[in-house]
Nucleic acid binder design. Structure first.
Length: 819
RNA sequence: GGGCGGAUGGCGGAACUGGCAGACGCACAGGACUUAAAAUCCUGAGGUUCGCAAGAACCGUGAGGGUUCGAUUCCCUCUCCGCCCACCA
């Protein structure tokens, strides 16, 4: 009979909750462990990606509890954001109500999976008790000069009627609604995250080896620090009018190879010299065309386009040569200075442009067999055609040229970043109100800290048209200036939801504090997060914002450390038919369906077993069935270990088999512990438990071995408890063991028990396995050689041949090289 | 275009630091139990060739080359796939 998972799972979930088994308390009796999974957006339904994410975290949580650590494992809701507002527009339901319902539903789903959360620390970011502190931090940042407003050409989603961060637009479409975006100029709120560029970059060194290397390198590329030089090129126009064109280059060593300049079509120099430029009309047409193109169109164009600016030219300060200036859209206005020095010999884009516009190509770097005839040479080499710098290697050349231009006064060494400031305002209702007031007399200033939180008004209308509903709520908008008391207007923009998730992990340490965002002592007790788990898609956004926020709090002396997440695990997607599960593809497998058919333990076991955590996981109905069968096999072991199956065997045989079984048990404990703790490879941990269970099935002396078999079964349960906790609790109880297995002691292994007395190793002859020999544990070189050469099979191969070499790798392999 | 990964049976995947490739699971085949089926338990299996059989030989981790007694693992060249960024000067 299959085990009754419905009854068992409901029973233990209630027991854990009633007895408060997973409540975390601040105590120094044992070492703390903070295990955290990225908090979910309460969309209303749990999907398999969630199940995977939280199952991974739950294994670690339960493992460390059993190891005697003091584990904090909280859960909450990233509950501000667009879908709630969209639902309000579509279904005439208030975002607050919609969100609340969704949370209730998803909380129930999470509970049905038996995750070991401390539910007393649950938070929701849309709760005023939470977002009050977003406002508080915002004002702190404003006081530190980290918040500013500026008019910016921002990404505008006409569908959502909101501004999106650069990071939220991919391939020209809105990251959530997938509709194309446009550009629009608006007065926006920014956080000066770029002040932390170097700190964020330096911090990555600390994370080396603890974070996936891809994430570290993605963040490095995201910040995009490059050292180079700023060089001023003199611009001359008709009528003797002059100006300077500033460019940034990472290759100042190629300065003598500059044969023309290129500016972005938006570059101010064009308007400035409107009267001197002879082909201004043609240019204007090109500028218009470029502006209508999205960045993607601009970047995917195979042919380089551009227009020569007639009437303007530049002087290369290195050799005083006069060179033409072009406007072309392959130069971006918001990177560097919006203008480049073109070195067609050593930059492929410039080379392409030079070919298309018949500009000369000069070779100034000579590599081994390099040539600039067919393509640009972008590698390192020796400087040529560069006057006093000829013969220098690339890296020396860079240094020397910078020194020279600094001395001559037409440029300097600079550092450039790709990283931009964080645009946080949203013209939206369902978010944290930005706690600022616009006063005609006093300007824009923050509300008084005592007046926080600035609560979102509930009585608003959702039409889905025009600007934010907050703007239309006069009771909210009209206020008094916090400084002079005169009538003033409240800011109606709300914050990007990435603000909410930038510090939530700190709130869990002191979730109900109404006087401060968190007690310093609580944060310092639990932080940093020992293991953070979530999707790779957050590699650059959430994980950079959080690191920035934490470093800011560190500078405010609110937290001791300056990196929030020590270890990071990025899990792969759950797919069906090779593609991610999604509503639009209609390939969703609902967790509820699996839970009601097989139970939570099976769902968890399968999702942990089917693939290593970092890799994509292909859902397989048959695989789920297999996990279900395995759990039943474990359940039925109760009967097996009471069965007398081989009465004929003598005591010697019993002792021998008993020892083998015990050895396998110790080996398994060692492997499972290492797989969970250091490798985070749960799939192999489970497969080795399966092997131990298989061994128990083929073992025949359950009633004659003095309780060894029962001992092994007990350890199987302990090893499986982090993966399939309900079943293990029940069998634990059925077998008469005391207390919760979830709080039980993780088994220890005995290294002495693991070593076999006799080891079987292969013997290779000329790299082919030709036989196997048994050697005593720790046998010496000579002894092994003797055993190998005595072997009949081996002898048949070496007869009449000369042994040139004998190699023995301890307890692994013997190799003979013969001729 | 740049960065970072990856490629192992019919499938998901395993293999410590260069040491018996294919653990474990799925699917499959055979057997036991059963009136029968399901479930369960047991057994088998990378490919090719030879052999009645026990077994044997050769090939085999995307392709080609290299280092080594020995390479899925290290090095070089190439192909394909995925993810992220993208004309980043």
């Amino acid at each position: 009979m299959d085990y009754n998972f419905k009854e068992i799972e409901a029973y233990w979930q209630k027991e854990w909750e009633d007895k408060k088994v997973f409540r975390a308390t601040q105590n120094d009796k044992c070492e703390k462990f903070y295990c955290l999974e990225m908090l979910p957006y309460p969309s209303g339904v749990l999907h398999m990606g969630h199940v995977r994410n939280y199952s991974l975290g739950d294994v670690l949580t339960r493992y460390y509890i059993m190891k005697g650590r003091n584990v904090l494992h909280p859960m909450g809701w990233d509950s501000f954001g667009m879908p709630a507002e969209n639902a309000a527009i579509k279904n005439k339901i208030h975002p607050a109500k919609w969100t609340k319902q969704n949370i209730a539903q998803m909380r129930a789903q999470l509970k049905s999976l038996g995750f070991a959360y401390d539910w007393e620390r649950e938070i929701a970011t849309s709760d005023p008790h939470y977002y009050k502190w977003n406002q508080w931090f915002f004002i702190k940042m404003w006081e530190q000069g980290l918040v500013f407003r500026k008019k910016a050409n921002v990404n505008w989603c006409p569908t959502c009627q909101t501004v999106l961060a650069n990071e939220q637009v991919s391939e020209g479409v809105c990251w959530r609604c997938k509709n194309p975006t446009q550009h629009k100029e608006l007065e926006q709120w920014f956080i000066k995250i770029t002040d932390y560029s170097d700190k964020l970059l330096d911090g990555l060194k600390e994370l080396e080896g603890k974070w996936p290397p891809q994430v570290i390198s993605m963040q490095k590329n995201w910040i995009g620090k490059s050292v180079g030089a700023e060089v001023d090129f003199e611009v001359v126009a008709g009528g003797g009018k002059k100006d300077a064109l500033k460019i940034f280059t990472t290759r100042p060593d190629t300065l003598f190879g500059v044969t023309f300049m290129v500016v972005a079509p938006e570059h101010p120099i064009i308007k400035k010299f409107k009267n001197e430029i002879k082909n201004f009309d043609e240019l204007e047409k090109y500028i218009k065309k470029a502006a209508s193109k999205t960045n993607i169109e601009r970047s995917q164009a195979k042919e380089k386009t551009g227009v020569k600016i007639e009437g303007l030219s530049a002087i290369n300060p290195a050799n005083s040569k006069e060179i033409p200036i072009f406007a072309a859209d392959y130069v971006l206005t918001d990177y560097g200075t919006g203008a480049i020095m073109a070195v067609p010999g050593h930059d492929q884009r410039d080379w392409d442009f030079a070919k298309a516009f018949n500009a000369p190509i000069i070779e100034v770097i000579k590599g081994e067999n390099s040539s600039v005839a067919e393509a640009a040479f972008e590698g390192d080499g020796k400087l040529v055609n560069s006057n006093q710098f000829n013969g220098l290697a690339t890296d020396e050349g860079i240094k020397e040229v910078i020194r020279w231009i600094e001395k001559e006064g037409f440029g300097k060494r600079t550092i450039n970043y790709k990283f931009r400031d964080w645009l946080i305002s949203r013209q939206r209702y369902w978010g944290t109100p930005i706690p600022m007031v616009h006063c005609k007399k006093c300007g824009t200033l923050p509300v008084n800290l005592e007046d926080l939180p600035i609560v979102l008004p509930e009585d608003v209308e959702f039409t889905g048209e025009g600007e934010s509903p907050l703007k239309k709520n006069s009771a909210f908008v009209n206020t008094k200036c916090p400084k002079c008391g005169a009538p003033a207007k409240r800011e109606t923009d709300t914050m990007d939801t990435f603000v909410d998730s930038s510090w939530y992990f700190l709130r869990y340490t002191d979730a109900h504090n109404d006087k401060e965002p968190f007690k310093k002592s609580a944060a310092n007790f639990w932080m940093s997060v020992d293991q953070y788990i979530g999707g790779i898609e957050h590699a650059c956004m959430h994980l950079i914002y959080s690191r920035f926020w934490y470093k800011f709090l560190h500078d405010l002396k609110l937290v001791k450390n300056d990196e929030p997440f020590i270890n990071l695990l990025t899990q792969g997607m759950v797919t069906l038919g090779g593609v991610a599960m999604s509503k639009s593809r209609g390939n969703i497998v609902s967790p509820d369906e699996i839970i009601s058919k097989y139970g939570a333990d099976t769902a968890r076991l399968f999702i942990l077993f089917a693939a290593p955590p970092q890799k994509q996981l292909e859902w397989s109905a048959d695989g789920v069935e297999g996990s279900w069968r395995f759990l039943n096999r474990v359940w039925r072991l109760v009967e097996v270990i009471d069965t007398l199956s081989d009465v004929k065997a003598d005591q010697k045989e019993v002792d021998f088999q008993k020892e083998n079984l015990l050895r396998l048990m110790h080996k398994t404990i060692k492997k499972v512990s290492a797989d969970i703790e250091t490798k985070l490879q749960f799939n192999t941990a489970i497969s080795s438990i399966m092997e131990l269970v298989n061994a128990l099935y083929s073992y025949k002396f359950h009633v004659r071995d003095g309780g060894v078999s029962k001992e092994v079964y007990k350890n199987v349960l302990l090893l499986m408890a982090p993966f399939s906790p309900h079943l293990c609790e029940q069998v634990w109880k059925n077998l008469g063991y005391e207390g919760f297995i979830s709080k039980g002691a993780w088994p220890e292994f005995d290294e002495k028990m693991i070593k076999d007395k006799i080891v079987e190793i292969p013997v290779q002859i000329n790299a082919k396995v030709r036989g196997k020999i048994l050697i005593p544990q720790g046998a010496g070189h000579e002894e092994v050689k003797k055993l190998a050469l005595e072997n009949e099979r081996i002898q048949s191969y070496i007869e009449g041949k000369e042994i040139i070499k004998f190699i023995y790798i301890e307890n692994k392999i013997v190799t003979l090289v013969i001729r």
